[in-house]
């Protein structure tokens, strides 16, 4: 259907992100912010940082999910409207990393939410984050 193709095209060309720290050491957050600076200019791909989860399509999570943040992460995810995607940035978000098994940590982001793409790295470089978002969007086509 041509309408479906237009809608998929629009979704691929306009991913708005909201950034959430689920317990990271801040290194990945700084890299996410670096990816949003004019140097990398992600507005070329239509990526905009939005303050409100209601406006966003992609939830960018960094860090292992702590027990404190678990419910908040779920709430943020439920506030977003469909279609929505979750991006795990960094080793901790992908698998809890060195914090695996820690008493206050329940694991990577995928223990709480369905994750669409993992971006490993400690911290993940801005180029890797942009590459991850672009790959996630390309997978929409299929």
């Amino acid at each position: 259907m041509i309408v479906d193709r237009i809608v998929t095209w629009a979704r691929m060309k306009s991913p708005w992100i909201v950034h959430f720290n689920s317990g990271a050491c801040n290194a990945c957050d700084i890299e996410v912010l670096a990816a949003l600076t004019p140097r990398y200019d992600v507005e070329r791909f239509g990526i905009l940082l939005k303050g409100s989860p209601r406006h966003a399509d992609v939830l960018v999570c960094s860090g292992p999910v702590t027990l404190q943040q678990k419910e908040r992460l779920k709430t943020i995810y439920e506030q977003m409207s469909e279609p929505k995607f979750v991006l795990a940035v960094g080793t901790c978000a992908s698998s809890a990393g060195v914090f695996n098994g820690c008493y206050g940590v329940c694991g990577g982001v995928d223990t709480v939410l369905p994750v669409s793409a993992y971006i490993p790295g400690c911290p993940a470089r801005p180029e890797a984050i942009i590459d991850g978002v672009v790959k996630l969007l390309k997978s929409l086509k299929k």
Partner: peptide, 18 residues
């Protein structure tokens, strides 16, 4: 910066309305 491509506002509008 380079900035958004020419179809960006249209893509935003279609995406939001669907």
């Amino acid at each position: 910066r380079v900035g958004p491509p020419w179809y960006q506002p249209l893509a935003d509008f279609i995406k939001l309305s669907t």
